[in-house]
Computed example of a mutant assay.
Amino acid sequence: MKTRKAIHAADYHPIADLITYNPLPSHKLRQIDPFIFLNHHGHQTYPKNNNGLPFGPHPHRGMETVTFILEGDIMHKDSGGHESVIEAGGIQWMTAGSGLIHAEVSSEKFKKEGGDLEILQLWVNLPAKHKMTKPKYIGLQKNEINHFKLDEDKVNVQLISGEWEGQKGSFETISPIMLSTIHLKAGGKFTKSIPQEENVFFYIVKGSVELQGEKIPFRNLVEFNNDGESVSVKASEDAIIILGHAKPFNEPIVAQGPFVMNTQQEIMQAYQDYQAGKFGSWDHE
């Protein structure tokens, strides 16, 4: 088993009226290469006639965003012409690559009717050789994503990318990355094989779980040592976790605002290109 190195509690950083916790990066943890950033929005209940999510048009380059919609919805629009509304249980995977502008806001229906909202966004780095790849966006609803059950149906795995016990994830990725959302009923357990050299991304969204007898509550990120070849989890109560693993890129990283590159010069170039209109035009209302 991989032993846990540290537990990192998510810091509270509200954005406007949006409840937001941020476990990565923190003052003790810069990244879990290639996983570099996580925001956990909610859980909260919006009233009728609300303003919805506050993420209007903004640029990205050099990384990917994976957005987990647990409750509520997200309306995505970008300068590449992609547009969708993804509802509860769905996933968005956007490859910013060479650069694009996008907005992530609530649908008109959600703003009018209100309701529960809980959304997480994970940033995944791109290796240097793929930083300037063509931008791409795919949004899948809950029923379009591969899922399977374990431990007499007490564990439900939503397999986003990579492979697990012969099952294949619903998103093709540029670099080999395994990523899943796992719902566990109290007492449910699983063991996932993970190569020793791969880094593990493990975040508890709801409930609490046990790792090698240690109980860890929600809104905590677990950092593992590269000393074993599996992770074994048992739910202390009904729980949701996000589990990912991948080989680290082991490349220099310079992150500034919405851009994630390898050098400061590349960051400066990203700002210049954005200001010069090279990320596409934004003509959405």
Score class of each variant (00 low, 15 high):
239 A>L: 06
12 Y>I: 14
22 N>Q: 14
107 S>E: 02
181 T>D: 05
255 A>H: 08
94 M>Y: 00
65 T>V: 13
76 H>Y: 11
192 K>S: 07
106 S>G: 09
229 E>T: 15
273 D>C: 03
168 K>W: 02
112 K>I: 01
69 I>A: 08
102 H>M: 05
241 I>N: 06
260 V>S: 03
64 E>P: 02
271 Y>F: 15
39 N>Q: 10
184 L>D: 01
66 V>H: 01
25 P>A: 07
199 N>P: 02
153 D>V: 00
24 L>F: 07
191 T>Q: 13
206 K>H: 11
89 G>N: 08
170 S>Y: 04
281 S>A: 13
281 S>D: 13
82 H>I: 01
131 K>P: 07
239 A>Q: 09
277 G>F: 06
210 E>F: 13
63 M>A: 01
213 G>Y: 07
28 K>E: 15
267 I>K: 11
114 G>C: 09
268 M>W: 03
232 S>K: 12
29 L>I: 15
138 I>V: 15
168 K>C: 01
167 Q>W: 07
201 F>I: 04
202 F>S: 03
22 N>E: 11
223 E>I: 14
89 G>R: 10
132 M>H: 05
247 K>G: 01
138 I>F: 01
228 G>E: 02
238 D>Q: 09
194 I>P: 08
271 Y>I: 12
240 I>H: 00
93 W>I: 11
242 I>K: 03
211 L>W: 06
43 H>C: 00
10 A>I: 10
228 G>N: 06
110 F>N: 04
68 F>N: 09
155 V>A: 08
279 F>N: 03
197 E>W: 02
94 M>W: 02
84 S>V: 12
92 Q>R: 06
90 G>N: 03
138 I>P: 00
80 G>L: 12
273 D>V: 04
157 V>Y: 05
110 F>A: 03
234 K>C: 02
85 V>A: 03
229 E>W: 00
111 K>N: 14
97 G>D: 05
50 N>F: 05
47 P>C: 02
163 E>C: 04
146 N>T: 15
117 L>G: 00
220 N>D: 09
134 K>H: 13
266 E>D: 14
191 T>M: 04
76 H>M: 12
283 D>F: 03
108 E>H: 10
92 Q>T: 10
80 G>R: 13
108 E>N: 14
80 G>A: 07
187 G>F: 07
209 V>W: 02
166 G>N: 08
53 L>D: 09
157 V>H: 04
199 N>A: 12
219 R>S: 13
104 E>D: 06
196 Q>I: 14
61 R>N: 02
109 K>S: 12
264 Q>R: 13
270 A>Q: 07
130 H>G: 02
211 L>H: 13
76 H>A: 11
75 M>E: 15
88 A>V: 01
272 Q>W: 00
96 A>T: 11
152 E>N: 15
185 K>A: 11
89 G>V: 12
210 E>S: 14
258 P>N: 10
136 K>N: 13
44 Q>I: 06
69 I>E: 09
185 K>I: 00
121 Q>G: 05
280 G>Y: 08
244 G>R: 09
41 H>I: 04
129 K>R: 12
86 I>W: 01
274 Y>W: 14
43 H>F: 08
84 S>P: 00
190 F>L: 15
